[in-house]
């Protein structure tokens, strides 16, 4: 699915990722945890192609395609999806228009037939229901005036509509109460299948009670410093990150 090798990246000339390696196979869920400032969000932004995040070394291939030279929209059309930590509000453009443009672009790339507006509306309504958002949210401006939880559910709805092969959830759980977290987790779990992979970036172990990962990695100082199974998350919860950070610096 995605293979990341020796990835180096910097923001405003400051090195953030310093040789990150990660291998995610189809159907797997990998959690990436780590202290603030470790580079967790940078990883998602670099993979999605955000401007200002400069790759200074290494490679990332998604299903065999090197994605680091591609525009963000090309990566999205190849099946990469980043659920934002802070989804952007776009007043004046309705959620429905935005979703249709997005789905049209991705389906076209995949050689699927375009949905007409009636078919699309039906589909969008279904997905609204699945993430427990009222249908009126389709008519509102993109994320405009949505609460934190509503924004995250809107991200989830986009993910369901686009059916990506690799989903990166960037601190999707931050600021959510348990009810909202459960809705998001249920949605994610329903999308898990043998052909779809997830990278779940989080600061809190709590999320992993609901989305149970196959692997847990600790990102500190721009590198993965420890990897393990889901029990590693519990250990981190207990001990904090200090012991790993020390190890990373000592290297």
């Amino acid at each position: 699915m995605i293979s990341i090798q020796n990835l180096h990246a910097s923001v405003e000339d400051k090195a953030i990722l310093k040789g990150l390696n990660l291998e995610v196979k189809a159907g797997e869920v990998h959690a990436i945890m780590g202290p603030n400032g470790a580079g967790k969000s940078t990883l998602g932004n670099v993979l999605a192609g955000r401007e200002g995040y400069e790759v200074t070394g290494g490679s990332a291939t998604l299903n065999g395609t090197d994605i680091l030279e591609l525009d963000p929209e090309e990566r999205a059309r190849l099946g990469l999806f980043l659920a934002f930590q802070y989804p952007v509000e776009i007043p004046g453009v309705s959620n429905l228009e935005f979703l249709k443009a997005s789905v049209d672009a991705v389906r076209e790339q995949q050689g699927k037939e375009a949905l007409d507006s009636v078919q699309f509306l039906k589909l969008a309504r279904e997905k609204c229901k699945a993430v427990n958002l009222d249908q009126s949210f389709l008519k509102r401006g993109v994320n405009e005036g949505f609460s934190g939880g509503e924004k995250k559910r809107n991200e989830l709805m986009q993910m369901m509509l686009l059916e990506p092969s690799l989903c990166i959830l960037d601190e999707t759980d931050s600021g959510l109460d348990i009810d909202a977290l459960q809705v998001v987790a249920e949605g994610v779990n329903a999308m898990r299948d043998a052909n779809r992979s997830f990278i779940v970036v989080t600061h809190y172990q709590r999320l992993l009670d609901y989305i149970v990962p196959d692997y847990v990695h600790v990102l500190a100082n721009g590198k993965i410093v420890k990897s393990g199974g889901k029990e590693l998350a519990l250990e981190l919860e207990e001990k904090g990150y200090g012991w790993l950070e020390d190890a990373a610096t000592a290297e």
Binding site: R50, E73, V93, A105, L162
Partner: peptide, 29 residues
């Protein structure tokens, strides 16, 4: 806004179309 353009692009929408959507939205509000 660069971050709004990126948001649209990250959903597969081309940069050109993203620019059109944001411009229109600014007026359409």
């Amino acid at each position: 806004e660069e971050k709004a353009l990126f948001y649209l692009q990250s959903r597969g929408i081309s940069r050109d179309e993203a620019e059109v959507m944001l411009s229109f939205g600014f007026i359409n509000e």
